[in-house]
Each structure stands twice: as C-alpha cells, then as structure tokens.
Simulated assay, not measured.
Amino acid sequence: MQVIHATCAGIDVHKREVKVCLVTRDAQGKRTQEVCTFSTMTKELLTMRDWLQDHNCRVVAMESTGVYWKPIFNLLEGDFEVLLVNPTHIKHVPGRKTDIKDCEWIAQLLEHGLLRGSFIPPMAIRDLRDLTRYRRQLVNDRTSEVNRLQKVLETANIKLASVATDVMGKSGRTILKALLAGVDDPKQLAELSKGRLRNKKDELELALQGLFRPHHALLLTRILAHIEFLEESITECEAEIEVMCCPFAKEIELLDTEPGVDKRSAQDMVAEIGVEMGQFP
C-alpha cells in the first residue's frame, strides 16, 4: 500500500493520558514505530510535542473524543498538521487486527492517507462559537425558568399565563412584583396591566384570583432572581459577541438578508461554519 506520510503519529486520547504511536523511516526506508504514554497535564503534553518534533514528525491524527482532544490540539496547532478524525470513520475502515492498539491503528491509517480530518475553524471562530453556544444555553436556561415560574403560578391557582401572552412582559413583571409585595386583591392586580392587556382586565381579574401562599412567594422570589441574573448574563454575552463579530460584519449582514435568518441566527451560522467555504466540498 502506498505510503503518504513516511513520518507521522497516531494519538489515542483519554481523560488522564494519551497514547502516541510514532511511525518513522530511516534512510533505507525501513519502518519503525514507537508507542509512548503521556499524561494530559500541560507539562507532559509539551514533552510529547518536543518528542514528536525531535523525530521530524509534522502530521498527527487523533479521534475527536469529547473535549479531551482540545488540550492536545491547543499545543500542536501551528507546529503540526493535525487531523481530527471521526471515531465512527476509523471504526469502519476494514483490515484492523484484533490485538492492535488504537494509537497504532490511527497511525497506520494516517500513514497510508486513509483518514479524513474534520473541519477545525480558526481560533477566532472557535472563540466565537464558544460564546454563541453559551448564549444559546443561557437562553434555554431562561426559558426553563420561565416555565418553572408558570408552574408555580398554576399551583397557586393563578392563571396569568392563560390571559397574558408573555408572563415576563412589562405587565406580567409588574403584577408578579405586586404579588410578592403582598397585594392579593385581583382587581388591584389587574389594574397594573399595561398596553393591550388592559383590554382584558375583566378576564385578568378572574385569572388572578388564586391561593397565593408564602410558600409560592418564596419559590417565585428565587425564580425571578434567577431569571433576572440570566437576562443580565445574556445581555453581557450579546455585547461580547457583537465585538467578536466585527471582523465578520459583512458576512453576517449578508446572511441577515436571507428569509428566515435574523442577526442572531447569522452570528450562530458564522460561529459554526466560519466564513471560508473552501474547506467544504
């Protein structure tokens, strides 16, 4: 079988250690391989990098195992060609012997050019991706807390969500704060409504007649505080994303013109696939 990379390495990544199979050839073309184990602590990974460089290894491959591949990639990026390979792809390549180590099998496949690396975006895109994914999680957490708030209101016989489209809108927040302040008169609470919700004051008054106990007030106080914290975190995250998106403003603006794509979706798209389409077939 044709040799594509005469000198290369296969890395089997685990949480606490990595096993590295280094393949080299001498002047006569005789193949040798060496397997070493390193801790995933930075000092040990730097030793691994130096060891590979001392043997003139410039291309390595490893499986995309959870997040454990990232510390290794952080230290190899720029000095090596790193192929991050889908474990399923490696598993389905025929010809593997049962007694061969994972790192040896990865090295063999890399040696003969049988591995295809996954797309790893540049650092700026990766950092943006971390923030947009974090923002998405914060938004999901806020949604979960709002749902939890609605359940507490339901257990207190308060049907605010049946009348108000957004429980956390201006009217909803004002009514909830009044409830926590001790106001329990449905008519007085309904008078706090604003905008179009005032057209439903009679219905709202019926919805606000409940059995709101101190226990519900305790839960509601905690939930509202958490929601406000999440909203503040989302706002701060949005500001950071805006700054990081400045180099990609043109691409985001263009994506924003597509039907069904808003600015946030455009930012997410850039964070996931980058702006250079040449790496996609």
Rank of each mutant, 00 (worst) to 15 (best):
A161H: 10
A161D: 11
T165P: 01
T165G: 13
T165L: 07
D166P: 11
V167E: 00
G169C: 10
G169L: 06
K170C: 01
S171W: 07
S171C: 06
S171M: 07
G172Q: 02
G172D: 01
I175Q: 02
K177M: 04
A178S: 03
L180K: 00
V183G: 00
D184P: 00
D185C: 01
P186K: 08
K187L: 06
K187G: 08
K187A: 10
L189C: 02
A190R: 07
A190V: 03
A190I: 09
E191N: 13
E191C: 05
L192Y: 10
L192D: 01
S193W: 12
S193N: 07
G195N: 08
R198Q: 12
N199V: 02
K200D: 10
D202T: 14
D202W: 13
E205S: 15
E205L: 01
L206F: 08
L206E: 13
A207S: 13
A207H: 10
L208V: 13
L208H: 10
Q209F: 09
Q209K: 15
G210K: 06
G210E: 12
G210F: 13
L211A: 15
F212L: 15
P214H: 07
P214K: 11
H216V: 12
A217D: 08
L219R: 05
L219Q: 13
L220V: 15
L220C: 14
R222W: 00
I223M: 07
I223S: 04
